[in-house]
Nucleic acid binder design. Sequence first.
DNA 1: TGAAATGTTGGGGCG
DNA 2: ACGCCCCAACATTTC
Length: 507
Amino acid sequence: MPSRVWKNKADKTERKEWACKTNIPYKNSEAILKISIHWFRNDLRLTDNPALIQAAEAGIVLPVFIWDAECAAELGPGGASRWWLHHSLVQLNDSLGGALNIYCGNPQDVLATLAKEHAVDQVCWNHSYEPQSPQRDEAVAEEMRSSGRDVQTFNGSLLWDPEEVLKADGTPYKVFTPFYKRGCLNAMPPRKPQKAQRVRYQKASDSLSVDDLGLLPKIAWDAEFSNHWKPGEAGALQALRHFLAEGIGDYKDGRNFPAKKKTSRLSPHLHWGEISVNQVWYAAREFLPSEQVDVFCSELGWREFSACLLFHFPNLPSENLNRQFDAFPWEHNEAWLLAWQKGQTGIPLVDAGMRELWRTGFMHNRVRMVAASFLVKNLLIHWHHGADWFRDTLVDADLANNSASWQWVAGCGADAAPYFRIFNPVTQGKKFDPAGEYIRTNVPELGNLPNKYLFSPWEAPEAVLGEAGVELGKTYPKPIVDLKESRQHALAAYAMLKARDTSSEPC
DNA sequence: TGAAATGTTGGGGCG
DNA sequence: ACGCCCCAACATTTC
């Protein structure tokens, strides 16, 4: 897409030429060509970007990205997500012909200064629905309006606006099915994606470079990431095309098998808005008939559901949605947490997942559920610790999805898995990784074990272990907990919670 | 998008 | 032929 950097005072011929191409009458171009800031946040794309389109239609665009280190320190992007952001910004800057204006600091201050320096007429951005956003954005808007500038904001990241998806009584949905069926599908269809258009960008002289933001990790644990991911808008479109060609046809069943790569792997792209969810939704629905894409679309629905929950319950990252769980007897054990994080629990499917995460910044969804269930239910470690680790290590770390999903697994969330639904990593492995491919890829030291014992090496006869070159406790850990015993323990903890709850009820 | 315990059914081996 | 037991296969319930 054509884009060009214009100096502050573009010469007349250039301006005339451009006015010609865009059908804006040259005579009026001076008056019509307003200067707008487009504030990039979680919408790092040029296509189907409502706020950017608004800015572009008005005239010259000053594209801005601001890294607010103070804000980021709290529940902002973790290590893997920062890696992604770094590369995504590099891509975005390239597609803007180098015109991305990068700053560090408090957005309100940065934008106020920029607006003054560049005599900005209008400021545009797409909403973020994360908890700190609405208030901060409103303050920015207020300041801009009071200095006589237009402020235009849009929903650029969700199919349905969380403010509008409410039950008849005006309260937010807490159960997925009615949320999706009645709240979403029954409402107006999502906005159709808009094409990218010609934009004239302006580069400020005091912009930082992407490197200046220091987003890349100091220790090179991201070594393998670039083998698996291509951040940026082009990478996002490529991932979408690949999913349509290879994954979506068999999505319903295929998505459950971690060794098959049938899931879309669009989550990090969607998180940073390198592609809009509207583009994905319509691309899928135009590609195959409804009944073949409904399962995938409902996964996008879960993304909407999580965003909506976080929007209406801003404490979702820290507090149990179901407050009964506040009394749950978590048993913190630092050594177990470390073993889980490093993929050294001695439970092959769990370790495979945790190592895939560490190595590639991603874990297949099926395995996420198993690994998370193991932490929360077999180890009885508080879901906060799991959420913290995922937030730091997943390239698709997303406050809404992460918080909602951990609460779902722990049983305290909206429409949650009942607490007694405890995944057995051995059964799950046999069912969803029957050939053991996924485990062998990620836990190579078990590679020579026969399938019969691959999912539970502690049950293998000594001779079989010896044959496979496995020595439990040396080359691979013994299980840190007994699956059956820890399951019983978890159920007992839950029973206690329930007893406590009912005993205090009748008053 | 659970797992395990418990219940039910029916075929086959066997005396 | 019959009753009995075993057990796989499936269904239901319980956590």
